[in-house]
Design a protein around this nucleic acid. Structure first.
Length: 658
RNA sequence: GCGCCUGUAGCUCAGGGGAUAGAGCAACGGUUUCCUAAACCGUAGGUCACAGGUUCGAAUCCUGUCAGGCGUACCA
């Protein structure tokens, strides 16, 4: 059992005579935030005292008297209003550290309640180039899979790719009319992506042209209204401006600004085509491209042989392409069951919903009306087409039937939270009441201006380019540092390339993982690829330093572990490191409670920090005595393995030398 | 209009009932005869948006205000 649960178990016994349900009070045992107070502290006495009508200080003393922790802690102290401060005995720390050292799992037991999870993440639209927004789901989802698995759960990772959507109609239309046979044969994905962008651009062009007059009219109306209101709202002598009027003016100003932005965006799309003779000509030749593209999608869905053949032809290329990206990110999926996989089940799902009275027809569409939701969830459109709500319901049904599931985690942008609320509610109406359905939501990727990154057009950063850039930057730093080593460079060109890749990709992933996923995320090249401070590089560097000690000292780790050498925590830095090393299990538990990997990154940062301080103060190879040297070597060994395991659980690698 | 989310150091963010609010970056100042200075140590920097409330105790919970983001009947 890891540290905190062990303490909680002891307190549970001590509290049993005082309260029926000690669990909430046990949650109030935590790491002391100040070393002066000890290592851990229990903060429940004040609140529990209130409930039991006892003086907190006396209650704390009573609990301490009953508490049996003599083997773990020094005698607990009651401080302040009733804090119980605990200082762990070194002997106990040493015993736990020794146990961790001799355990491939570093002392982490598997869960006593294993569950079966499906983690649904990444889910890109194929044939549409991925951008930075997609990396968050991929990286967080992958880390959660690894962590849940390590804890002992059964995890099925499933990439629910968008492979049946409107983009295929555009690509098919593009393929039929604009394809460059040569490029398609040599680099099919590049050509398909170009075709998608081209058709999208022309479609947007006509869209913008169509909408522009309406936008301009709205702008005019709002502007007129604003002018009128502004005059009315201008303060005159002896009269205060009505608050409502002032608010109305503010709203109008906002509306006008929005209209201006939309017009500018439409103008831009129009200008892009008009200013290019080639594009302008294509636009002239394909005035109906928007509807035609949609028609191609509809034909595909209706089973048109030709379009289905195209779809079958394009898919392997598209899948290869995204697979290549996943390989670069060391991300693996057990299944890639995209939207298309469920296409034959949609009619049945909708039929079941209707038959069971969960869905009904409204304005020609089939809708699920849910309590507390003003708008229904539409599961079949007026034109008979299905949408992602239908697919997602079919997917739940399929997953539940195929795997005996306890939970599905959807690692998806928080903008879809309404969809998931409705989806989960509908799934429960269908009888999935024991299934845990979690929207593991995360914040939007924002641009430098603080506004969301746009999915189409604009200056989106392609994912592939981002990876290249990360590795390139890392390579520069690797080379500079290697060259600057006191005894000259140590790394071969191959090693340098390898380190650059590990460091670059690690930095990229860590940037996403180290942040509380629920916050929005300001995309910043420099920050994302930063390799100083709280970054994966810091941990990787600490790891390389430890490993270098073993290399320099020509130490056989296996032999050392079996040698009977003992850990002794002879200085504050060693003790602090030792205590930190025992907290891995607590960090993993915290991560799993709310599915937030940033608990684990914070922990690893603490470990690396403690190690760096230790490294600075405690010489290992030149320790005063052989016993001390061995003890420190053991601490180093456990540090290295803890960091390596932690990074591995985040999907990040580490190198022996860097 | 309604719903959800956010507001913490110059910047990017942790902390989400407990003791004196933390980190990274940026700034300033120190540390390489010694296992990798991608490091370490220190200084400075805060009305935790604002106002009320609940509590022994509030950055944290509740209410309101302000500011921003997202979503809101046939896109995903």
């Amino acid at each position: 059992m890891t540290l905190l649960p062990t303490l909680q178990a002891r307190f549970r016994q001590a509290l049993a005579p005082l309260t029926e349900n000690p669990e909430p009070w046990l949650e109030m045992i935590r790491r002391a935030q100040d070393d002066r107070f000890g290592d851990y502290q229990a903060n429940f006495a004040m609140a529990l005292g209130k409930q039991l009508d006892k003086k907190p200080h006396e209650l704390a003393a009573e609990v301490v008297a009953r508490l049996d922790v003599a083997d773990i802690c020094h005698p607990p102290e009651v401080a302040g209003p009733g804090f119980i401060n605990l200082r762990i005995k070194d002997e106990w720390l040493v015993a736990r550290l020794t146990a961790a050292l001799n355990d491939p799992r570093l002392g982490i037991e598997t869960t006593v309640r294993p569950r079966v999870f499906v983690v649904d993440f990444s889910g890109p639209n194929v044939a549409k180039p991925m951008h930075v927004g997609h990396i968050r789901s991929t990286v967080i989802g992958d880390a959660l899979c690894r962590i849940l698995r390590f804890i002992g759960h059964t995890v099925i990772s499933d990439n629910h790719i968008g492979d049946w959507g409107t983009q295929f109609g555009m690509i098919i239309y593009g393929y039929k009319h604009f394809r460059d046979e040569n490029t398609y044969r040599t680099r099919p994905v590049v050509e398909l992506a170009r075709l998608y962008r081209l058709v999208r651009q022309l479609t947007d062009y006509f869209d913008a042209k169509e909408k522009l007059p309406e936008l301009q009219q709205r702008y005019g109306e709002k502007q007129d209204e604003l002018n009128a209101q502004t005059i009315a709202a201008t303060p005159q002598q002896g009269r205060k401006v009505d608050k409502k009027l002032r608010e109305a003016v503010q709203k109008l100003e906002k509306a006008v600004k929005e209209a201006v932005d939309e017009i500018a965006s439409a103008d831009k799309k129009i200008a892009e085509v008009d200013s290019s003779p080639a594009l302008a000509q294509l636009a002239a030749e394909h005035p109906d491209i928007k509807r035609s593209g949609q028609a191609e999608t509809a034909k595909l869905h209706a089973g048109d042989a030709e379009n289905y053949r195209y779809w079958q032809e394009f898919m392997p290329y598209c899948l290869d392409d995204i697979e290549r990206l996943y390989r670069r990110l060391y991300v693996h999926f057990d299944h890639t069951l995209g939207e298309s996989f469920y296409r034959s089940m949609l009619a049945d799902v909708v039929e079941e919903l209707q038959r069971r009275g969960i869905a009904r027809e409204s304005q020609g569409a089939v809708c699920v009306f849910l309590e507390g939701h003003p708008a229904p969830m539409i599961v079949r459109k007026q034109d008979g087409a299905y949408l992602y709500a239908s697919t997602d319901l079919a997917t739940i049904r399929y997953r539940v039937e195929r795997w005996k599931l306890d939970a599905i985690l959807y690692v998806v942008d928080h903008r879809q939270s309404l969809h998931f609320q409705q989806l989960f509610a509908a799934a429960r109406l269908l009888g999935n009441d024991k299934l845990e359905l979690q929207h593991v939501n995360f914040g939007t990727v924002l641009g430098k201006d603080g506004r969301p990154f746009k999915t189409r057009a604009g200056d989106t950063v392609g994912l592939e380019g981002l990876l290249d850039e990360a590795i390139l930057r890392a390579a520069r730093i690797v080379a500079a540092n290697d060259d600057a080593k006191p005894d000259g460079a140590e790394l071969s060109p191959e090693q340098r390339a390898c380190v650059a890749e590990t460091v670059g990709i690690g930095a990229l992933k860590y940037a996403d993982l180290s942040q509380n996923r629920t916050s929005d995320y300001e995309f910043d090249y420099d920050k994302m690829l930063a390799m100083n401070g709280n970054t994966a590089t810091y941990m990787q560097y600490a790891y390389a330093r430890v490993r270098n000690i073993f290399a320099k000292g020509d130490i056989d780790v296996e032999q050392l572990r079996g040698s009977g050498a003992a850990i002794a925590l002879s200085s504050p830095a060693e003790r602090a490191l030792g205590l930190e090393l025992l907290r891995l299990g607590d960090a993993l538990n915290a991560t799993v409670v709310d599915y937030r990997p940033n608990h684990l990154t914070a922990y690893l940062f603490d470990v690396a920090n403690s190690f760096s301080s230790f490294y600075e103060r405690c010489s290992v190879l030149k320790a005063e005595t052989p016993e001390l040297r061995n003890s420190r070597l053991l601490l180093c060994d456990l540090t290295a393995r803890t960091i390596l395991k932690g990074l591995e659980l985040l999907g990040i690698g580490a190198e022996e030398k860097m």
